[in-house]
Design a protein around this nucleic acid. Structure first.
Lengths: 192, 192
DNA sequence: CGTTCAGTTGACTAAGGTCAATTCCCGTGG
DNA sequence: CCACGGGAATTGACCTTAGTCAACTGAACG
């Protein structure tokens, strides 16, 4: 029973019993091992993903280098909108960092729901709005803070993330090299 | 007659004659002089804006310094979602750089449309999706390219923007200081 | 004509990137 | 259970480039 995703949606849009049932019908739940790809560049992203459990990361390859965009813990949504909406191949990768359980929501099925019941149109709207707000926050972290402050900010805002995620991934997420993060950590530590 | 905004919407969602009329009723058109603020930080952003004509910029103040997020030319949408959705004061500014004609779409009016006619729910969804895609692109420009490449990229992608917008604004948009942009330009010029 | 502001340039600083070596840790296989 | 291999993290030396402070020029505008 995909209770988690339903509760998540209900936290922002009211669903009737029938809505719930119609929605549950189109869901598919898959399990992924560590390092397995949930979405891989080159594919067309025709789904929306919901992370039930586990940790995953989104990254893309820029001339041979992985650039991490975001980490997703349980209870998170993800899709590559530019691939999802336009139908072009994605250049993003969604990869399990620990064993993950992921709910798949197929575009075609979702669009049918859009047609038959406008409440799902609203669900889609709120998801896009939320995605926008998250990205805005991420964007402002990266553009308004110095590397050192980005790390301090992350330590403060999401200490559990810093605990559980390898340092070179965090460096990539902060937009710097592992060596630089290592030095930043040393600087911070020496100050104290 | 607000033809422009209607055509813009019709480019992604079909509207009936009645839909159109209902929509037009809630619009308000305002004119702004150069340097006038369309939205100012501290206000609650309870509107969505559509630029009919003119050029405007969005920026926020980070310890006394203006950081430009985006320039809007005619036929562009803007709102600060985090203020619009949550109702908290915005820290973004939308300012006319040249005389602007702007369509205002009030949140309350829009939400009434959402209730009475689901097609507008879809309009809202697509607007949020488009906003997300634009932001994603902006984000990747700023995080994946070196300052010099950001400028070269801008020159290539939006030369008319480089023409019409003062250089220190472009610097801010690219995330660098005016002096650095000046040196980058010199570097590029010397190479040729 | 003078004030103001944008743009350029110079000298200097700071901090991240790069290349390379070393250490540390962990998991795997013998 | 131990030894080995490989990736992660650290550190050093050096380079590159953006930031900072400051001076100067030039153009726009009143």
């Amino acid at each position: 029973m995909p209770i988690q995703i339903i509760n998540n949606i209900k936290s922002f849009v009211a669903l009737s019993q029938e809505d719930e049932e119609a929605f549950i019908k189109i869901l598919e739940i898959k399990k992924y091992a560590k390092k397995e790809f949930i979405l891989q560049e080159g594919q067309v992203c025709d789904k929306i993903f919901f992370i039930n459990s586990g940790i995953s990361r989104v990254f893309f390859n820029i001339d041979g280098e992985e650039k991490i965009v975001q980490f997703f813990f349980s209870d998170s949504w993800f899709t590559d909108y530019s691939s999802f909406l336009i139908g072009q191949p994605t250049n993003e990768n969604l990869q399990a960092m620990e064993p993950c359980e992921v709910v798949h929501l197929k575009k075609n099925d979702l669009y049918k729901l859009y047609e038959t019941n406008p409440v799902f149109e609203r669900v889609g709207r709120v998801m896009a709005e939320n995605a926008f707000m998250s990205l805005m926050q991420l964007n402002s972290m990266r553009t308004n803070l110095e590397p050192e402050d980005r790390y301090l900010n992350l330590l403060k805002q999401r200490p559990e993330l810093v605990e559980r995620i390898p340092q070179h991934y965090i460096a990539s997420y902060l937009g710097i090299k592992p060596q630089s993060l290592s030095r930043i950590r040393k600087r911070i530590f020496d100050k104290k």
